[in-house]
Design a protein around this nucleic acid. Structure first.
Lengths: 106, 106
DNA sequence: TTGACACGTGACCTTCTGGTCACCTATTCT
DNA sequence: AGAATAGGTGACCAGAAGGTCACGTGTCAA
């Protein structure tokens, strides 16, 4: 299985994206902390974190019996670079901003 | 199903990513043209293109009995913006470039 | 040292997904 | 008109993925 495949498979699940959102808002949370934010068993959350870690989207650091999780943005940047070259980046960025802006006021 | 879910599900499959690569290299190809690049039935390719189109990653234009496919980079930019804010963008970009550079000379 | 706590593994079941096929519609060219 | 070409639909099957559980390992604190 290719390097990128792990990343895309990891991002394919909404629960895992939500975990990334949580870590994006605040880094360094433990499994139990993250579990409390989800309507799911600890085992489910653990499985998802494992997938994210294998993909390199999440990096961990152990400290005693706790394991802290951190978001790694590099793989996401690589996705961007794969299909957006520096010439079209300005347009894509502008249109993306516009879409975000429009969705703020429904 | 959320808007973004379609995008991530679409990107989860290697065949679909390869289709995006093909369109990134050259836009406006028809189904039959794309099929000839893949070891797969026309139906398989059609199904994948349908998924990409539903996700907004590919835009199409009909001309007679032909259907031309174009890559739309906006959803990919939105992925980027979701987990990379403008403060960390420089680091992420630099590290991504470094990784690409290192992998060029194995 | 004993109990509570944080994290981990393997098996299991249900649901989703990828790929193929038989068959169908619409456009172009002779 | 008739044949060839480009694209489309619905059903079907094998394999993968999400979620839960019973049980196990290491760490901290009273």
């Amino acid at each position: 299985m290719g390097d990128d495949d792990l990343v895309f498979k990891a991002l394919a699940d909404p629960t895992r994206r939500f975990l990334l959102d949580l870590l994006f808002a605040r880094d360094g949370r433990t499994l139990t902390e993250l579990e409390s934010e989800l309507e799911m068993t600890r085992f489910g959350v653990m499985k998802h974190l494992r997938v994210l870690e294998d993909a390199g989207l999440v990096v961990t650091r152990r400290s005693g019996r706790e394991k802290h999780h951190f978001l790694n943005p590099v793989p996401i940047r690589l996705i961007h670079d794969r299909w957006i070259d520096k010439y079209t980046e300005r347009q894509a960025s502008a249109l993306a901003d516009l879409k975000t802006e429009l969705e703020k006021q429904p």
